[in-house]
Design a protein around this nucleic acid. Structure first.
Lengths: 194, 194
DNA sequence: AGAAATAAGTCAATATGACTGACGTAAATT
DNA sequence: AATTTACGTCAGTCATATTGACTTATTTCT
């Protein structure tokens, strides 16, 4: 049923699944790294499928997930920042963000220094849903990393990092690897939310 | 302008970008592997952005890219196989596939053994567009892999492979790592197309 | 031979996530 | 005082996906 129907191919399974050297390179002459292009597709397809079922229960989609995730990890972030990360327009974000605010998963507070800003925070229930959505992804990652030899997870980090556009790489690293309890100087931590 | 506005954070840059041990783990207590979740998002975002500009020129979207890619790599594949790979419905595929056939990038031939089938092949122009779309992605991958230590690319392959759902992992490996010149026994190779 | 399953396609209606362009408002910066 | 920035909104559109029902041809099963 989930049979993709290529197993009767004369060369099916050639060189694959044979101990430690799992992936010999195929002929690269015409399309180098084609296997990685496809592996990325499949890996991401299944990785993102994890939270989808849970999202349905709330009537949300992947767009909501992304917003929830980044707001949760960067409490007090500006709408503009979120737009730059997601690479979408204000209008596209608008509907999704409104739904999340209306359903009390995300909260907006005026910026204490710049009152034009409406800084974003997850509510308690927002934080919970983020954890619930991340859980299956964490499990999948944990299993995948566990299958690697020593130091494998650092290699994977390096690889993914190197795949990001050069011009935003540093910004991204700052976003990911910071102590995010106090995103901006003089700003309230999420735990201080009313 | 592309400033994501978190660099004035007191801890900006903490521990990041310092030589070989580029990525120390942050506090994992609340959300393990959160950094990898985000790295995957950013890496895939930029990876898929490469072909998007070129696709626009043809009036196509990512859906067309996916179809073109998999048909090109699996000449003579069935529509049903494509649906299983892309995890979309027949109706969703229908429109995209029709456009690709109408614009002469994909060709359908009745299956010689089972005449219900309409096996899919890329035309010459279809094959060319696939190469053009893959080129920037190959370059990005090449650079990313070059930045890794010895054996890094195999680790990455292993990781991505392990991220795929267990139940389809073998099928996927067969699809990726086969000699795809003769996808089915007794079937014409793409080079034999009229 | 007849029934059931499969491969492919189609119709209609709908949802989601994205887009462009224009406009408004408040607040900060120059 | 003028400009820029942060945010929001209105209106219209497009691409990609969905569900459900139905048709046609062909193969397979009993």
């Amino acid at each position: 049923m989930t049979d993709v129907n290529f197993k009767d191919s004369p060369d099916a399974g050639l060189g694959v699944r044979n101990g430690s050297n799992v992936f010999p390179r195929e002929d690269d002459s015409e399309m180098p790294h084609c296997d990685l292009i496809e592996l990325l597709f499949y890996a991401y397809r299944d990785f993102t499928s994890d939270p989808d079922a849970k999202l349905d229960a709330y009537g949300f989609g992947r767009a909501h997930h992304r917003v929830l995730h980044f707001v949760d990890r960067n409490p007090g972030m500006m709408v503009t920042d979120l737009l730059a990360i997601l690479r979408i327009t204000k209008q596209s974000l608008g509907r999704v963000l409104k739904q999340l605010i209306d359903s009390d998963f995300i909260e907006q507070k005026p910026g204490p220094l710049d009152r034009r800003q409406r800084l974003l925070y997850t509510t308690e229930s927002g934080h919970h849903i983020v954890s619930a959505l991340a859980a299956p992804q964490s499990v999948r990652l944990e299993k995948a990393l566990a299958s690697l030899p020593q130091g494998g997870s650092d290699i994977v980090r390096q690889f993914l990092y190197a795949m990001i556009n050069d011009d935003v790489r540093d910004e991204v690293a700052n976003m990911i690897y910071k102590t995010d309890r106090y995103a901006r100087p003089g700003q309230a931590a999420p735990s201080e939310q009313k």
